[in-house]
Design a protein around this nucleic acid. Structure first.
Lengths: 213, 213
DNA sequence: GTCTATAACTGGATAGAC
DNA sequence: GTCTATCCAGTTATAGAC
């Protein structure tokens, strides 16, 4: 029952945000009484935290493991592409497997990530350790890079990723059906080289074009 | 009065989203009666639309003009960097001038852009013409590029841009003060080369690394 | 654990005085 | 144009029966 409530809360919150969903709606979606929500989670706010935490722990562990595995496999030949792949792979895998729960969760993360009020703090609380690990790994293949450039480039990657995960249907309309918001494999195969090229350009060549004289 | 209401609504909506702000809060912030909000804008929903539309018209016209100017100045030597610069310049200019109204507005746009429910439709309604113009311009310097790749790369640029505009304070914390969310000039000087390199890699080299054999 | 009932409050919206 | 007063639907949350 607790899990079912989390599932429905996750789906609704990811579409309408914290203030756009009522406890009654969550209860109704799970076909239970609203009072049960308070029984299990006390307050609406704690329900939100529970939703956010549940999958964060799982995906964070997977990402840490994927990056560690790559670091050891690559030895001294660490590539930017490999770091970003390891960072993204667990997310994409869950999405591509078609698990609707995971898709809802990633939409929620995307929404929180661009909420200026409490978004920054919430994201930091749950995800900063993983990101520090990525930056640390990227420093290994770009020892010349300044921390400032590394953090900004990560920031751009984060924005590109979270917009993709939010599946707003925007690109579908824009491309008149040529691209599909939910096609996370298409995203993965383009975002890795896109971001890697961006990192390389900004962090290694100081912003000068690759084809500069 | 109408303008004052729009200003306060803009500030509040950009921080808490549509459902996180009440008509009463907007009225209170502007030191007027709640009934006045309904007098001027009829419904809360129409107030939101008015906020969104007000600056969209201005910035869209500026972006169209900037891209047209660049196209004519560049002649047959159109560069990816130049296209992206023209696309971003009006936004960055308003932000850098320190106008708090514009900053609030861009935060609101960022929030809407990653709202899965109505976000996609709302953004499309207001901003698609400008984006089509950018893609059209980019096609001129990358005639080999597939539309699919062009749209996906724009999508990544859009995500990186809107996360930056949302000023969540996330990068400040992450970088321990080295980078500042509100430093839109730092963003501009890095996002242009970052995105240009990404476009070049994905659209021209099909995802293969620049340093590939 | 689950539900009924209800408290205590806040939301958007409107009618009508001035 | 602006404010008072108010309607009423909907909100979180709780006390207590079963």
């Amino acid at each position: 029952m607790r899990e079912a409530l989390l599932d429905h809360a996750e789906a609704l919150l990811s579409q309408h945000g914290f203030h756009g969903v009522t406890v009654r709606q969550v209860a109704s979606a799970a076909h239970v009484d609203p009072a049960l929500v308070h029984y299990y989670f006390d307050t609406k706010s704690k329900l939100f935290d529970a939703v956010f935490l549940r999958r964060a722990e799982i995906v964070n562990a997977e990402r840490i493991a994927a990056m560690e595995t790559y670091r050891q496999a690559a030895g001294s030949d660490i590539q930017i592409e490999g770091c970003i792949e390891a960072f993204l792979e667990p997310i994409v895998r869950h999405s591509v497997q078609g698990d609707v729960g995971w898709k809802n969760y990633f939409r929620l993360v995307a929404l929180v990530n661009s909420s200026s009020g409490w978004g920054g703090e919430t994201m930091a609380r749950y995800f900063d350790p993983v990101i520090r690990k990525l930056v640390q790994l990227l420093r290994l293949c770009m020892p010349q890079a300044s921390d400032e450039n590394l953090f900004w480039c990560y920031h751009f990657l984060s924005g590109a990723l979270t917009l993709s995960l939010s599946e707003t249907g925007r690109i579908d309309r824009l491309s008149e059906g040529l691209c599909t918001s939910t096609d996370h494999l298409a995203i993965y195969h383009r975002l890795v080289p896109f971001a890697a090229a961006g990192f390389r350009r900004v962090c290694l060549h100081g912003g000068a074009p690759d084809n500069a004289p």
